[in-house]
């Protein structure tokens, strides 16, 4: 009988501790956001640019707590792979292979500490000797907790 009482006691303890273990800590479990509604955003899906001109990148990043950093990457889509963060289908050139003159752009930028919103402006000059054609323009942003959000735009670089 004593064993039984002991067991009931142990089990009671166990379940009381289970029940008392509320989640009091507030953790950030939300992604940062790249605004969809910014009317002056650039680039937009299916944008066209010319060699030698400058892309005036503009985006609005927001987070529920604190933003981290952001990155801009441009790579070719000559073989029509897709990152598809957009449901729009842009008109693509015929499939071709990249030469050594293909454009690769990859830069990271920091966001001032304690920013919950940040208007990002970056001027990106397009070299004037690169392969023309379909490219992906990828924007990635993190928050301080390590959540990441990204958007990929299909753009065309013309002669």
């Amino acid at each position: 009988m004593r064993i039984r009482h002991f067991c009931v006691f142990v089990l009671s303890l166990m379940f009381v501790s289970l029940a008392s273990c509320g989640d009091s800590d507030s953790k950030d479990i939300a992604y940062p956001v790249i605004s969809d509604t910014l009317t002056t955003a650039s680039p937009v899906e299916c944008d066209r640019f010319y060699r030698g001109e400058t892309i005036h990148f503009h985006a609005l990043f927001t987070d529920n707590v604190e933003l981290g950093n952001f990155n801009i990457e441009v790579h070719n889509n000559f073989e029509h792979h897709s990152h598809g963060t957009s449901a729009t289908d842009c008109e693509l050139d015929p499939v071709k292979s990249a030469t050594s003159k293909v454009w690769v752009y990859n830069e990271s930028f920091s966001i001032p500490a304690n920013s919950a919103a940040y208007d990002a402006y970056v001027d990106i000059p397009i070299p004037d000797d690169i392969d023309t054609g379909d490219y992906h323009f990828v924007v990635r942003v993190t928050d301080a907790a390590g959540w990441q959000f990204y958007k990929a735009f299909s753009v065309k670089i013309l002669e």
Binding site: G68, N69, N71, E73, S108, R140, T142, A144, G146
Partner: peptide
């Protein structure tokens, strides 16, 4: 494996 806010070579 800790996700940080930083970027290296374009990746988190």
């Amino acid at each position: 494996l800790n996700p940080t806010p930083d970027y290296i070579e374009g990746m988190q």
